[in-house]
């Protein structure tokens, strides 16, 4: 083949891709039109606010707005890092998230294993119906219920009084408030949490159980050697995503349940940002900086989680 020929071929190819592109644009015209509203939505409510991040490097003046407030470099971060409340909130965020990993994450797995042992019984459906319901309530409503039960005139106090413990209100007792967060979140979410595991268990090959039984494995050993390995993939993916979500320590729950006395043990970055920006009203610059700090760490953690999952050969978020 001569040089000329090759050249001709390549120009023809370029022309082909060009016409292909215009063909595709025409072919998918309607598809692009369909996407316009979504692009406008994400531009306005996800990307446009990112420009507001500049506030983290400015001194916010109410009368000047975001655009004209003066730049101050890293001064907001310096002030923030000097605030003991910030460090407390940061440490609480990590500690509460790790606490949830330890005391909430395994509970759904255990409950799923137990529910699975009940086969297709009617009671199993009843249990699941009750256990999943609270997931669909908001934390305003569910915390209202929990406070009613646990508060100073609630039924728990009544029962404890029978045993001679008077006036014990766990909602304002720092030493028990975190366990309380874990327990109440478990009550609300554990039923929902089992669904994905139960679906994974349903996909375990029944012949494996047969084989294990023939080999003399009892119920517990079947659970341990067949069911658990069968859902190992699901468990590890959910675990990695939970680690990726470490910066979300459960704002909805804490915001609705915490109060002054337990703030030192339950104030997380999101509640800290909210208070700073909308309760104490000292301006929007430092809260923006704190929010940015949290977003960057949270985003990196989630990206890391996604990367690990893909390395494992599973399907990540993208």
């Amino acid at each position: 083949m001569s040089v000329n020929n090759a050249k001709e071929l390549s120009t023809r190819r370029v022309q082909q891709t060009k016409s292909k592109r215009s063909y595709y644009l025409k072919r998918y015209r309607i598809m692009y039109l369909m996407l316009l509203p979504a692009l406008a939505f994400y531009a306005t409510f996800s990307y446009y606010p990112m420009y507001g991040i500049t506030l983290a490097f400015k001194q916010y003046m109410f009368n000047l707005g975001v655009l004209r407030s003066p730049w101050v470099g890293l001064a907001n971060f310096q002030l923030m890092f000097q605030d003991p409340q910030f460090w407390n909130a940061f440490r609480n965020t990590i500690e509460i998230s790790l606490g949830r990993l330890a005391f909430e994450f395994p509970v759904a797995i255990i409950l799923a294993l137990l529910l699975n042992e009940l086969g297709h019984s009617k009671m199993k459906r009843v249990y699941q119906t009750v256990l999943t319901f609270p997931h669909f309530l908001s934390w305003v409503v569910f915390s209202g219920i929990m406070i009613e039960i646990l508060g100073d005139t609630g039924i728990v106090d009544g029962i404890l009084s029978q045993f001679g413990i008077h006036g014990f209100d766990p909602l304002v007792t720092p030493s028990v408030f975190r366990p309380l967060l874990f327990i109440t979140d478990n009550l609300k979410e554990v039923g929902w949490g089992t669904i994905i595991y139960l679906a994974a268990i349903a996909g375990v090959n029944p012949e494996l159980y047969e084989a294990a039984y023939v080999d003399g494995a009892g119920r517990l050993r079947q659970m341990w050697h067949v069911t658990l390995p069968g859902i190992r993939g699901t468990i590890s993916i959910l675990l990695i995503f939970a680690v990726g979500g470490l910066m979300n320590a459960g704002f909805d729950q804490i915001f609705n349940m915490y109060s002054g006395p337990v703030q030192p043990v339950s104030d997380i970055l999101q509640t800290y940002v909210f208070r700073l920006a909308f309760v104490s009203g000292n301006g929007f610059d430092i809260p923006t900086a704190a929010g940015l700090f949290s977003s960057v760490i949270g985003g990196l953690l989630l990206l890391g989680a996604n990367w690990v999952i893909k390395r494992m050969g599973q399907e990540g978020l993208f």
């Binding site: 996800s46 990112m50 507001g52 991040i53 949290s294 993208f318």
Partner: peptide, 17 residues
Amino acid sequence: ILFTMFFGGGLVPWYLV
């Protein structure tokens, strides 16, 4: 679209918008 699941402007910039 997916990027917004990983990173956002945060509460205050969102409120200002």
